[in-house]
Design a protein around this nucleic acid. Structure first.
Lengths: 111, 111
DNA sequence: CCGGATCCTACAAGATACTG
DNA sequence: CAGTATCTTGTAGGATCCGG
């Protein structure tokens, strides 16, 4: 895309960090509580392990989530939002609030 | 993706309506003021007319923007947010506010 | 249980050229 | 000016198999 991110354009940065349809939904789950890998899979019907890993890794790199592996049998891994990630709560709430006011995504044509 | 959109999940609906990297940026420009087609192109360096038209049409269908064509010479077309689209201001502001608090998208690794 | 590796699909987006 | 048409590309995501 090569958008130079204008001075005041924090929006572009947000989009870079939460790109793709799943990213925001994953954050949404983690806002409720820390989750294990499998728990996230169950909370996000249809997501593939590949995608989930991919998004989670990206979040780690950006300091949005922490990954804690417990060397137990069976293995256990917890994903938790960092304070930075917690800050996304306001954004997600704003999204949800707005979307609730939308008549209907598909029926909007008839409006 | 086929995500069934859980009961409380307005977030998923938001993501459906503002999908793709450019969608949100276009809304961001229109939040400042109504824009003509070419004005949007200039405000969004790198966007192709194809993509711009595509996103704009989708916004129209969803009732987020209105398209007003003036039968003049030269032709003039104005894109303006509907009240529904205006409601996105809070969401975009939340995004910007959060992103500003992020150390740096790329340097976050070193944090 | 967690998740990396590989290959493939779907869709947003880019490039370019052309029209009312 | 404001698009449209066609073709290609880039990347998120899906499917499947397998290793720690």
């Amino acid at each position: 895309m090569s958008n130079p991110c204008l001075p005041e354009c924090g929006v572009a940065r947000f989009l870079t960090l939460l790109n793709g349809p799943w990213a925001t939904l994953i954050v949404r789950e983690l806002l409720k509580a820390p989750h294990r890998f499998t728990e996230l899979r169950e909370a996000l019907p249809g997501i593939s392990p590949h995608t989930l890993t991919s998004r989670l890794r990206q979040f780690e790199r950006h300091g949005i989530v922490t990954r804690t592996a417990y060397a137990e049998i069976p293995p256990r891994v917890e994903y938790e939002l960092t304070p930075l990630g917690e800050g996304l709560r306001d954004v997600l709430e704003a999204m949800g609030t707005w979307a609730m006011a939308v008549p209907d995504p598909d029926a909007a044509v008839t409006a």
